[in-house]
């Protein structure tokens, strides 16, 4: 098993090197003449006003929140799916119950209007 992961590990170390090479080559051959006007932030071509860090809507947080909960639940279900051959019917139904409890959360978020983009 560790042999499988050796490959992944080597890949993990080497994979960033290819794109990093593509960033190093321009360093050597491309012109570099930065000036204060050139490195201004580009916002529709007019001068930037105010702070970059604008106030975000709480909506974004709600989406990430629902995603987090669903993600954790689905990760729980993957071992259940792999062991499917060894499971009797009622064990499968327990998995279904697990999903249904989760659906209640989705229904709540839906009814509350938290999933609307207003």
């Amino acid at each position: 098993m560790l042999n499988d992961w050796l490959f992944i590990g080597v890949f993990l170390i080497l994979a960033p090197i290819f794109p990093a090479l593509a960033l190093v080559i321009p360093r050597l051959i491309a012109p570099r003449k930065p000036n204060s006007l050139k490195s201004q932030t580009y916002e529709c071509g007019i001068e930037t006003v105010g702070d970059t860090w604008v106030q975000f809507r709480v909506q974004y947080y709600i989406f990430a929140l629902v995603f987090l909960i669903f993600d954790v639940e689905m990760v729980f279900l993957f071992p259940w799916a792999v062991a499917f051959d060894q499971l009797p019917l009622f064990a499968v139904l327990e998995g279904v119950l697990f999903i249904l409890i989760l659906v209640a959360g989705l229904v709540y978020a839906w009814r509350k209007g938290a999933l609307e983009w207003t």
Binding site: P79, W80, A81, A83, F84, Q86, L87, V92, E94
Partner: peptide, 8 residues
């Protein structure tokens, strides 16, 4: 697979 069985 063991984990999957144990969980349910």
């Amino acid at each position: 697979s063991q984990l999957g069985q144990a969980l349910v």
